[in-house]
Computed example of a mutant assay.
Amino acid sequence: MTQQHPWSRYVALGDSFTEGIGDPEERAPGGHRGWADRVAEVLGSSTEDFAYANLAVRGRLLQQIIDEQADAALALRPDLITVSAGGNDIIRPGTDPDEVAAGFEGLVRRLRSDGATVVVFTGPDIGLTPVLGRLRGKVAIYNEHVHAIALRHDAVVADMWALRDLSGPRMWAPDRLHFSPLGHHTIARMVLAALAVDNDLEPYRPEPLERRPWRQARSEDMGWAREYLVPWVIRRIRHQSSGDGLQPKRPEAVTVVYRDEP
């Protein structure tokens, strides 16, 4: 059973990670569920009149999140806010994690201004991730800033770098850029733990994966590159975003009730 907690109005800010990309769900607005919906479902199960909004939009950079989501979030008068931002900036060539962190700190300061509990996220350890693995050092530097920012502004850290289960292949969607339903489920458990909320979400207990022949693995890698990597690179070159023209999936704070696990 989920225990009582002090929050009644939750707003999530961010990009594709918080929107829930990789976790398709027909019942969810926008067709994606994600860890934030899962957290809201758990929190809402023990609190009457609990309301939840999700302002995240895939592809958003930090400044876009600041410009488009911060004021809208505060206008909803939340007492709980989660914000994951800066990841899309960090993976872009030539960006400085110190500069990104300075912008993120301003956002956290703003979100804390009305006294809401604010949860911030470190990036996962992407050392074994194709393409993104070479950016591991930048992510690690940014993560150190996130921890320091949380200390300075009394925010809660949801530490994805420390969540070693995320290194497993089942945690990632077919595009290898977003988390799978199991990944989002695992992250939801971690966020609830960071908030000290006991819950009945089942932990991840994987069965061993079968070893794949080398040729099969390389063939799958080539198929992945054609279907996902090349379009992603082309969007970066053209300065396009997968979220261009999209609006938040949950712009108003409402109840959320569906829960089938994982």
Rank of each mutant, 00 (worst) to 15 (best):
M190A: 14
S242K: 11
L182D: 07
V256C: 10
A116K: 02
M1E: 12
P262R: 02
G59V: 03
E220V: 08
L76R: 09
L163D: 03
A116H: 04
D98K: 08
G223T: 12
T122H: 04
L201M: 14
R235Q: 08
Y10Q: 10
A28D: 03
Y142F: 15
L80T: 06
R38M: 12
R236L: 12
A51D: 11
Q64T: 13
V42T: 14
F104N: 07
G86S: 12
A101H: 03
T82A: 06
Q69C: 06
V233I: 14
S8W: 04
R109T: 13
E210F: 10
S8E: 10
L177I: 09
E202H: 13
P251W: 09
Q216Y: 10
V146T: 10
R152S: 13
A53R: 01
D175E: 05
T18Q: 05
V39P: 02
H32S: 09
V257H: 14
G22W: 01
V254P: 07
H5W: 01
A51Y: 01
G183D: 03
R259K: 10
R189A: 14
L182A: 09
P251R: 07
D154E: 14
H5L: 02
L111A: 04
A158L: 05
W214I: 15
S241V: 04
A196V: 10
P203H: 13
V118L: 06
P174H: 12
D96C: 11
V191N: 05
G22N: 03
P124E: 05
L74P: 05
R9C: 12
D159T: 07
I65Q: 03
P262Y: 02
H5I: 00
G115L: 11
G87K: 00
K249V: 11
A116I: 07
H184R: 06
I91F: 13
S180R: 02
L229S: 08
V120T: 01
E41T: 15
I187A: 00
E68H: 14
E227T: 15
P174G: 10
P262W: 02
R110T: 11
D260S: 11
P213E: 11
H153D: 10
G183Y: 01
L80P: 06
F179P: 01
R92K: 11
S45A: 15
E227R: 15
R250Y: 08
T82F: 05
E26T: 11
A53M: 03
G137Q: 15
T95I: 04
E25D: 13
I149L: 02
Q240S: 12
S113R: 11
L62P: 02
E227W: 14
R60N: 14
A40M: 08
L135G: 07
R152G: 14
A150R: 02
D244P: 00
L135T: 10
H239C: 07
F17H: 13
R152L: 08
R136C: 01
L177A: 10
V42G: 05
Q69F: 06
